[in-house]
């Protein structure tokens, strides 16, 4: 099944949770801001949030330093 992540089509496993998807991308979920279909995903929901089919997912991955 497909989603659109930051404007690009991506194949994902049906039922995959946001946290697992972020880990697959090599991101520490704590450092990522996520919006799915126009709604910001709360941090405490990352573990349970299942990516829906055809989701439009927007991710901003932050790096430390300031």
């Amino acid at each position: 099944m497909q989603i659109i992540c930051n404007g690009e089509k991506r194949e994902i496993q049906p039922g995959i949770r946001l946290v697992a998807f972020l880990q697959e991308l090599g991101f520490n979920p704590d450092t990522v801001f996520a919006e799915c279909n126009g709604i910001i995903v709360k941090k405490e929901e990352y573990d349970s949030f299942v990516l829906p089919e055809d989701a439009r997912l927007e991710l901003i991955r932050f790096v430390g330093g300031g």
């Binding site: 704590d30 910001i40 941090k43 932050f62 790096v63 330093g65 300031g66």
Partner: peptide, 28 residues
């Protein structure tokens, strides 16, 4: 400085402070 506080702050501002101007930073 902390990478985890950056998205946390953006979430806080965008969900809890409607209409506020916001300028974050990442990568310098």
């Amino acid at each position: 400085d902390d990478a985890a506080m950056k998205p946390a702050a953006l979430r806080a501002a965008h969900t809890g402070m409607k209409g506020v101007g916001y300028v974050g930073a990442s990568g310098m």
